[in-house]
Simulated scan of single mutants.
Amino acid sequence: MTKIEMTEQIIVAKKELGLSWEEISKKVGLGSVFLTSACLGQNSLTKEPAKKLCKVLKLGKDVEKALIEFPYKTWEKSIPTDPVVYRFYEVIGVYGDTIKELIGEKFGDGIMSAIDFSMDIDKEKNPAGDRVVITMNGKFLPYKSW
């Protein structure tokens, strides 16, 4: 089973059971961002969470095996057209250099890890319109000289 086939089965089961990613992640015992990413094929799960997920969604061993397989992470280099994804490109386009500059000032020359990383997505009620709150937390990795 491919990661794409796995994702399709997970999405169908999620819809049929009427569960949210938040509900599924609580039952599996993982963060909703990471679990959703694994279900969409961008990360892998270890055996126990994969087994729990398949039990929650009533899916078979083939999905469990696909969840455990390491993903091949790729993305198109062109700008996406989905408005939500596009806006992240816009944010990085407008604020990317600022983010890099401020990280450099506070930490030195290096990067924020996307491997030793966590992210939370929350909703903040606001009378002017609800707000999307995204918290990214990555380990700082300095560049090495050799």
Rank of each mutant, 00 (worst) to 15 (best):
A38Q: 06
L53V: 01
G41N: 00
L19S: 12
L102G: 11
K47T: 00
K3I: 11
S25G: 01
L35D: 07
T98Q: 07
L40E: 06
S20G: 09
E16G: 10
E124V: 15
E22P: 00
K144P: 04
Q42F: 08
Y86R: 13
S78R: 05
Y89W: 14
F34R: 06
R87A: 07
K15D: 13
T36E: 05
E16W: 04
V91Y: 08
L40W: 03
I10Y: 06
E90K: 07
T46I: 02
D116F: 14
D109K: 15
N137F: 08
T81N: 06
D130I: 02
V84H: 06
D62R: 07
N126H: 13
A128P: 01
S20N: 04
D97W: 07
C54D: 05
V28E: 03
E124I: 11
Y72G: 02
I11E: 12
M112F: 09
L141G: 10
P80H: 03
C54K: 00
D97S: 12
Y89M: 03
V63E: 07
K14F: 09
K139Q: 15
I11K: 13
E101Q: 02
G110M: 12
G60P: 00
M1Q: 12
G60S: 05
K47F: 03
K14S: 08
M112P: 09
L19P: 01
W146P: 14
A114L: 15
E64G: 01
F107Q: 15
L40G: 05
K106L: 15
F140D: 04
P80Q: 04
I121S: 13
M6I: 09
S20F: 00
T135H: 10
E22C: 09
L141Y: 11
Q9C: 07
K26L: 13
P83K: 03
M136K: 13
E69K: 01
K61W: 01
M112Q: 12
S113G: 13
G96K: 08
D109N: 15
L141P: 08
P83N: 08
F34A: 05
T74V: 06
E105I: 11
K106F: 08
F70Y: 04
I134F: 01
E90F: 03
T2V: 09
I68Y: 08
D82I: 04
E16P: 11
K125E: 14
K65Y: 06
I11Q: 11
D82E: 05
P71I: 12
T46F: 01
V133L: 14
S113V: 09
M119E: 13
L67A: 01
T46H: 02
C54G: 04
S78D: 02
S113W: 15
K26P: 06
L53R: 02
K100Q: 11
K125I: 05
N137D: 14
Y89K: 03
L35C: 00
M6G: 13
P49I: 01
Y95G: 13
S113A: 14
D62K: 14
E23R: 12
G41Q: 06
F107H: 14
E69I: 03
N126D: 15
I79Q: 06
Q9S: 05
G41E: 02
S32Y: 02
P49Q: 01
E8P: 09
I10S: 03
F140N: 04
D122N: 14
A38F: 02
I115P: 15
M112Y: 01
I115K: 14
F88N: 07
I24F: 01
F88W: 10
I79E: 10
S113F: 10
K52M: 00
E101L: 03
